[in-house]
C-alpha cells in the first residue's frame, strides 16, 4: 500500500493536469474576491477578509468545494484506472486492497492538504490588504473552516469510491454537477412543497451549505461605515452531527468502493 502511495505521489508531482487543478482551485478562491469587487456599493477598502469569507461561502460554498474534491479524487484515483496502468499493480502481485487504499490515501493526503490551503487564499489576500474586518469573527470563521475539513474528507471518500466504481474520472467530474444540483433541488422542493426536507448532515453538500453559506446578517454602523455583520452560532448538536456523519459516511463510501473493486473484473 505504501509503495502504491509513493508511486502515486511520484506521478502526481510530474502531472501537469494536477498542477492545472491547483491553479483552478486558486482561481475559484480569487473568483470569490473578484465577485466582491464587482459590487459598486463596496469599495476596495471595504472588502475585508471576513467579508470575503462570507461572500466566497455564499457564492461558491458547497458546489465548488465538491467540484474541487471531485477533481482531486478523479484525477488521482481515476487517471491510472482510465489508462489501465492500475491493472499493472494487480499484475505485479499487489493486493486489490493495496491498490484501492494506497490510492485513497494519496487522494486524502493531497486533497486534505491542498483544498483547505488553497481555497482560503483569496480571503487571506483580502485580510492582508484590508484587515479582517467585522463581518464575521475570526473564531467563527476558523470553526466553520475546520468543520468543513471532515466534510471534505467525506466528499473525497465518496468521489474516490465513485471513481473506482465507474473506472473513469470524467464520469466522476460530470456526476458532481448532478449530485450537487439534485441535492439542492430536493431541499428546495421539500421546503416549497412542505414535504420532508433532508437534514443537512445527510448529504455532504447540504452540510457544507450550512457551514459556508451564512445569511443571518444585520447591518451595523462600525467606524462610521455600514457593515453587514453575520451572526451564526453553531450548536453543539450541529458540530457533532457534522463530524459523526462525515466520518461514518466517509467510511461507508470507502467500504462500498472497496467491496465493488475487490471482485471487479478489470479491463
Amino acid at each position: 500500500m505504501w509503495n502504491i502511495l509513493k508511486a502515486t505521489l511520484h506521478q502526481t508531482k510530474r502531472d501537469r493536469i494536477s498542477y492545472g487543478m491547483l491553479v483552478f482551485m486558486l482561481l475559484i478562491s480569487f473568483c470569490g474576491m473578484f465577485m466582491c469587487f464587482m459590487d459598486p456599493d463596496t469599495p476596495f477598502s471595504g472588502v475585508t477578509g471576513s467579508f470575503s469569507f462570507i461572500q466566497c461561502g455564499m457564492l461558491f460554498g458547497s458546489e465548488f468545494l465538491a467540484l474541487c474534491c471531485a477533481l482531486v479524487a478523479g484525477r488521482i484515483a481515476g487517471w491510472d484506472l482510465r489508462d489501465q496502468t492500475a491493472n499493472y499493480e494487480v499484475l505485479f502481485g499487489k493486493k486489490r486492497s493495496a491498490v484501492y487504499f494506497g490510492r485513497l490515501l494519496a487522494v486524502l493526503l493531497i486533497g486534505l492538504i491542498s483544498i483547505p490551503l488553497i481555497l482560503p487564499i483569496g480571503t487571506l489576500f483580502c485580510t492582508v490588504c484590508n484587515g479582517w474586518g467585522a463581518s464575521f469573527t475570526v473564531q467563527n470563521a476558523l470553526l466553520h473552516t475546520a468543520l468543513a475539513i471532515p466534510v471534505t474528507f467525506r466528499l473525497l471518500c465518496f468521489f474516490t469510491a465513485l471513481t473506482f466504481i465507474t473506472g473513469n474520472e470524467i464520469v466522476t467530474f460530470v456526476s458532481t454537477f448532478f449530485i450537487c444540483m439534485t441535492t439542492m433541488l430536493f431541499k428546495v422542493l421539500g421546503e416549497m412543497l412542505r414535504l420532508w426536507t433532508p437534514p443537512s448532515w445527510l448529504t455532504a453538500s447540504l452540510n457544507l451549505a450550512d457551514l459556508l453559506m451564512i445569511d443571518n446578517s444585520t447591518t451595523e454602523l462600525i467606524n462610521g461605515r455600514h457593515v453587514d455583520v453575520y451572526k451564526h452560532v453553531l450548536t453543539s448538536q450541529f458540530v457533532a452531527e457534522t463530524i459523526i456523519s462525515s466520518v461514518l459516511f466517509g467510511i461507508l463510501w470507502i467500504a462500498l468502493g472497496y467491496l465493488f473493486f475487490r471482485k471487479k473484473d478489470l479491463r
Binding site: I4, A7, H10, R16, T85, E89, L91
Partner: peptide
C-alpha cells in the same frame, strides 16, 4: 497484457521509476 504499461504524460524514465516505486 494488451496495452503495454505506459503513462502517456510521463517520460520513459519517469514511467519505469514509477514502476520501481510500486514494486
Amino acid at each position: 497484457i494488451e496495452t503495454p504499461y505506459a503513462k502517456a504524460e510521463l517520460s520513459a524514465r519517469d514511467n519505469i521509476e514509477k514502476l520501481r516505486l510500486q514494486k
